[in-house]
Every structure is written in structure tokens, then in C-alpha cells.
């Protein structure tokens, strides 16, 4: 379970360009559920998931992960928590260009030092499960939008994290690809993973597989469905 206690985030604090991206927020995210943060652009969705996923620290407040306060941990331990707990699918997928799909999938496991053969097998299994085995050795620049998305999801899963965080994963995807993503999210949930998604896409926010919808406005949760 992830708990946010009075979490705020202010960028460029004390400068003329100061932006309060997230007001005081209290939130609890249940395990093994699909939670969606919805809201228009600039409502604080991305800021919220970067804090939930330990990619950024809150300006104030606490993030508690499975009973342990993690937001105040030193950088090194925070990285360890991130690697062990979270898998990320970024808004623009953020794959490393110039290397192949399978190398991108393997990247999060490099610091762990998993033996190469085992890691390669695992990466190939993940790519195969998303129908991408035939494109495994292609550089990511030449993959289509849908293929890039699937590689990004495979990368998020390579370390077998408890929580998958996806930031606007369906932006600029057609209906078929959106449905495919929702099917993957449902499958992950069925496998016991916690899935957190940000989206302002009604095809996602209105999906039946969503367990909880948190709507944000002006950097605060406006309402939440249980």
C-alpha cells in the first residue's frame, strides 16, 4: 500500500517562476488494483506519480510505502526502492535510442548484475508475451508507436516490480492500441501487480477494469471514486 500524507510539490521555490504543482495531498493507493489519476493537462497528474514512484521528492509531506516512509531516504536507498518496487512506462516511453528493443528491456536489470543468459531469456519472454519477439533486435527508432509502447511496458516489468506506473500511456494511440493496453493492465492486476495510470483519455478513465479513479484539478485530488 502506498500512502501520501500532506504531500506538496513546488518547483523553483522562492524564485519568480515558482510553480505549485501539487497542493497538500492525502491519498492511499491500494495494492493489486488499477488506479487512474485523471485530469486536464497541468492538473498535477504527472507530478503526483513521479512522487508516488520516488522519481522526485515532495517539497513537504511524506510518502509511505508498505509502512515505511521513503520520501526522506538518501538518494542511494531511494534508487534501490525504485528499482525493487516500481516499473515505469513514461509519457513518451523514454526508450534509449540507438540500441535494440531487447537491450532497452534489459537496461533496468544491469545494476542488479543478473547473469546475461538469464536476463536475455527473461527480456525475450517479456517481448514475446507482447508479441514483439520478432522485433527484439531492431533499434527502437524504427519501431511503430504501438511497438514502442509494448517495449516500454516490457522494460517496466523486467525486474518484476510490485507496482507499475504508466504516465499517459495511451496518448496518441488508436482505439485498438488503447484496448490492448487496458488488457495488459488488467492482466498485470490479475497477476497481483498494482497498476497506477495517469490519463485524461476517456477510453481509459471510463474503462470497466479501472478500480479507482482519482480526478485532479489545480494540483489537488478533486474527487475520488472508491
Amino acid at each position: 500500500m502506498i500512502e501520501l500524507c500532506a504531500v506538496t510539490k513546488t518547483y523553483n521555490a522562492g524564485r519568480p517562476n515558482e510553480v505549485v504543482a501539487l497542493g497538500a495531498t492525502d491519498l492511499t493507493i491500494s495494492d493489486k488494483a488499477l488506479t487512474v489519476f485523471a485530469g486536464p493537462s497541468g492538473s498535477g497528474k504527472t507530478t503526483l506519480i513521479t512522487i508516488v514512484g520516488c522519481l522526485a521528492r515532495p517539497t513537504s509531506g511524506r510518502v509511505v510505502l508498505n509502512g515505511e516512509a521513503v520520501s526522506g531516504l538518501p538518494q542511494r536507498f531511494l534508487t534501490e526502492v525504485r528499482r525493487r518496487t516500481f516499473g515505469f512506462v513514461f509519457q513518451r516511453f523514454n526508450l534509449v535510442r540507438g540500441i535494440s528493443a531487447i537491450e532497452n528491456v534489459m537496461l533496468p536489470a544491469y545494476p542488479i548484475g543478473t547473469p546475461h543468459a538469464r536476463l536475455k531469456t527473461r527480456a525475450m519472454e517479456l517481448l514475446s508475451s507482447f508479441g514483439m519477439a520478432h522485433r527484439a533486435h531492431f533499434n527502437v527508432e524504427i519501431l511503430s508507436g504501438g511497438e514502442v509502447q509494448r517495449v516500454a511496458i516490457a522494460r517496466a516489468l523486467v525486474n518484476d516490480p510490485e507496482v507499475i506506473i504508466a504516465d499517459e500511456p495511451t496518448a496518441s494511440l488508436d482505439g485498438e492500441r488503447v484496448a490492448h493496453f487496458l488488457a495488459i493492465a488488467a492482466d498485470l492486476k490479475a497477476r497481483g501487480k498494482t497498476v497506477i495510470v495517469t490519463s485524461h483519455d476517456p477510453r481509459v478513465t471510463g474503462a470497466a477494469t479501472v478500480d479507482r479513479l482519482v480526478t485532479l484539478a489545480d494540483g489537488r485530488p478533486a474527487d475520488a471514486t472508491p
Partner: peptide, 12 residues
């Protein structure tokens, strides 16, 4: 940034 996000430490 990507490497850090996916679990690489500063030392890595």
C-alpha cells in the same frame, strides 16, 4: 534521467 528512473544508481 531514464537510467536513473529505471533503477540505475548515481554510482552506476
Amino acid at each position: 534521467g531514464i537510467l536513473k528512473a529505471v533503477g540505475w544508481d548515481t554510482s552506476h
